[in-house]
C-alpha cells in the first residue's frame, strides 16, 4: 500500500487505474483551473502588448506583437518623479511586512487568550465584540479613524500605515478558530511539566496552528500590498507614499501612460505570488501532533 493511499484512506485497489468518475472530476478541475487563471494570464499578456494593441478597438485578448517597451515606459515615467522609485518599493515592503508580522503576532496572542485554553471574566463579551466589529461597514469608520490618527500625530509616519490595519477582527477570529482545535491534552501535559503560557504559546500553539497563521499571512499581505487607500489618506509627502498609490498616479493618468500602467500591474502581482508560494507549504502541511489522541 502506498503512503498516498493510506494518507487519504483510498483503497489500494483504486491506485492501479483511474475510475471514470475520477477522470471526469480531473477534467472538470482542469477546465475550471484554466478559467481561474484568466486574470493572471490577462495581466501578463497586457504587459507585453505594444501601445496600439492596448488601445485597440475592438479589444483583443491575446497579444500579436509582444514587446518589452512598456517596462521602458514605466522606467521613464517613474524616473520623472521627485523621489527615487526604490523609495516606494521600500515603503511598501516595510509596511506590508510589518503589518503581516504584527497581525500574526498580536492576533495569535489575543486568539490564544480568547480560545478554549483560557477562561476569564469578559472573555466571551470581548470575542462577540471582535466578531461584531467585522459587520460594521468600514466606509463610515474611515473618517473617525482618520481623526484619531491625526490626533496621535501619526500623519505621514509609518505608524499610520502599520497600526490601524492591526485593529481588524479577521485575524483574531481566524486564529481563535484554529487554536481551539489544538488538542487540550498536550497543553495540559505541558502545564504539568511546568511550562509557562509564553512557552506553550511559542512551542505548542504556534506550531500547531501554523496552517492558520500562514493563511493569515497570505491574505494580510495581499490586502496590505494592494491597499492604496491608506497611503492616500494618511500620507502627505511623496517620500511616504507606497507603491500602489504611486502606480495609480502613473498608470491612471493619460492614455499615453497605458503601457506603463500595464507593466506596473504586472510588477505589482509578483510579490504576493512569491509570498504565497513561500507560505503555502505551511498552509498545506499537516500538523505535528496529528495522531495524538485522548
Amino acid at each position: 500500500m502506498s503512503t498516498y493511499g493510506l494518507y487519504y484512506g483510498i483503497k489500494p485497489v483504486r491506485r492501479k487505474g483511474w475510475s471514470f468518475g475520477q477522470i471526469v472530476l480531473f477534467l472538470f478541475l482542469m477546465g475550471l483551473a484554466a478559467f481561474m487563471m484568466l486574470p493572471l494570464v490577462f495581466v501578463v499578456v497586457n504587459a507585453l502588448k505594444p501601445l496600439d494593441e492596448l488601445l485597440l478597438f475592438p479589444p483583443r485578448f491575446w497579444v500579436q506583437r509582444p514587446t518589452l517597451s512598456n517596462f521602458g515606459d514605466l522606467l521613464l515615467a517613474t524616473s520623472a518623479t521627485t523621489v527615487p522609485f526604490v523609495r516606494y518599493i521600500f515603503n511598501s515592503v516595510i509596511v506590508s511586512v510589518s503589518v503581516v508580522v504584527l497581525t500574526i503576532l498580536i492576533g495569535s496572542m489575543a486568539a490564544y487568550a480568547l480560545s478554549n485554553k483560557h477562561k476569564f471574566p469578559g472573555q466571551e463579551l470581548f470575542f462577540v465584540l471582535v466578531v461584531s466589529s467585522l459587520m460594521f461597514a468600514s466606509e463610515v469608520t474611515s473618517i473617525p479613524r482618520y481623526l484619531i490618527v491625526n490626533k496621535l500625530g501619526w500623519i505621514d509616519h509609518y505608524w499610520a500605515l502599520i497600526i490601524p490595519p492591526l485593529a481588524g477582527g479577521y485575524g483574531v477570529f481566524l486564529m481563535k478558530q484554529f487554536i481551539d482545535q489544538v488538542p487540550r491534552e498536550i497543553i495540559e501535559a505541558a502545564i504539568i511539566d511546568g511550562a509557562s503560557d509564553w512557552t506553550i504559546f511559542w512551542k505548542l500553539i504556534m506550531p500547531g496552528a501554523q496552517s492558520a497563521w500562514a493563511t493569515l499571512g497570505i491574505t494580510q499581505f495581499v490586502a496590505t500590498w494592494n491597499d492604496a487607500f491608506s497611503a492616500l489618506i494618511f500620507t502627505r509627502t511623496e517620500v511616504m507614499k507606497t507603491l500602489p498609490l504611486m502606480l495609480q498616479t502613473v498608470g491612471g493618468g493619460s492614455i499615453a501612460r497605458a503601457g506603463a500602467g500595464a507593466a506596473a500591474t504586472f510588477l505589482m502581482i509578483f510579490p504576493p505570488i512569491i509570498i504565497f508560494v513561500f507560505l503555502q507549504s505551511r498552509v498545506v502541511e499537516s500538523m505535528a501532533y496529528s495522531g495524538i489522541k485522548s
Binding site: I106, A110, L114, K119, F136, L147, A167, V172, F201
Partner: peptide
C-alpha cells in the same frame, strides 16, 4: 488568568482605539 489578559492586551488596545472608538463615533 492574569496571563490571558496580558496576551490579550496589545490587540485589545489597538482594537479599542482604531475599531471600537470609530464605530462608536459613527
Amino acid at each position: 488568568e492574569k496571563v490571558a489578559y496580558l496576551f490579550l492586551a496589545p490587540y485589545a488596545i489597538v482594537f479599542f482605539v482604531f475599531t471600537i472608538l470609530p464605530v462608536l463615533t459613527a
